[in-house]
Design a protein around this nucleic acid. Structure first.
Lengths: 80, 80
DNA sequence: TTAAATTATACCCTAAAAGGTATAATTAAT
DNA sequence: ATTAATTATACCTTTTAGGGTATAATTTAA
């Protein structure tokens, strides 16, 4: 099974945004309409997520998934 | 069934990048390792996609999915 | 230190994504 | 105008994400 990376762009963004808003995973789950389990998978870096579920959460923070150029930093961490 | 939007950020990016590279959907499918059907769903704006499949294609063009602020343009088109 | 709250892990089930194939439609080439 | 190539649609099957629940671990508050 592909291993999880807690520190990818999406996981980090959601975890940080949520903490900044002083919310629990459970509250974020309620407010966004996605399952609590999904919030957890998301923050822990589950590799395979459905885009519209992710967007459902990102939208709450005024963001969305878009294609962006791969940073050097990301490229460095890719083979690990 | 949620209707498809051919002109979302991801679809447009992939279709444009592919055409710029003078590739067919079939070639992109072969080169990225995702199914031909997926390339089609992707370019035609299927709403629910798996992030790692999308990234598999984006990576080929040096991009990846990341959370970005929702643009005013996007916000304007949201209710439609 | 204990208790309470929050987060993480494990199980099962259902719904749907992804892929294959076949066919139709559209576009490009001759 | 015909033909060939590319793209789109439809049907079916397999795989797995997401959700629910229960339990364990961790963090926070008292």
């Amino acid at each position: 099974m592909k291993e999880w990376d807690r520190h990818n762009a999406i996981s980090d963004f959601v975890r940080t945004s949520r903490k900044d808003s002083k919310m629990t995973q459970s509250e974020l789950s309620d407010l966004t309409g996605v399952g609590l389990r999904f919030v957890r998978d998301l923050e822990q870096g589950k590799p395979n997520l459905m885009t519209d579920k992710v967007n459902q959460v990102l939208l709450f923070f005024g963001h969305q998934l878009t294609p962006t150029p791969i940073s050097d930093e990301t490229r460095r961490n890719m083979g690990e």
